[in-house]
């Protein structure tokens, strides 16, 4: 469990760096959705399933839909 926790935290840091680094806003949002899902698994590992449910529904679901809606109304590429 400790090793899985370590792997998930390293994955989170890599996801955060990649979301900041990419120029394509749509792929940044998809990377952020995967970040939120891995964060939900980490909540489950930390024995708080209510937070995991909320994070998976809100962080990975609603936030991603809102970001994609805004990107479709504005521009996809960062300058």
């Amino acid at each position: 469990m400790q090793v899985l926790n370590f792997i998930l935290v390293v994955f989170l840091v890599i996801c955060a760096l990649a979301a900041g680094h990419t120029k394509d806003l749509l792929s940044a949002v998809v990377i952020f959705a995967s970040y939120s899902l891995v964060m939900a698994v980490l909540w489950l590992l930390l024995q708080s399933p209510d937070v995991a449910l909320t994070e998976a529904a809100m962080g990975a679901g609603v936030t991603t839909i809102m970001f994609i809606a805004v990107i479709s109304r504005t521009s996809r590429m960062e300058k």
Binding site: V13, A16, L17, A19, G20, L25, A28, V29, F32, Y35, G59, T63, F67, V70, I71, T74, E78, K79
Partner: peptide, 21 residues
């Protein structure tokens, strides 16, 4: 990492992703 994303990027959507992180 989130603070770096907020401070160094000019794009507003990138800034909001940084705030979320």
């Amino acid at each position: 990492v989130g603070l770096y994303t907020v401070v160094t990027h000019n794009n507003f959507i990138k800034k909001i992703i940084g705030i979320n992180i």
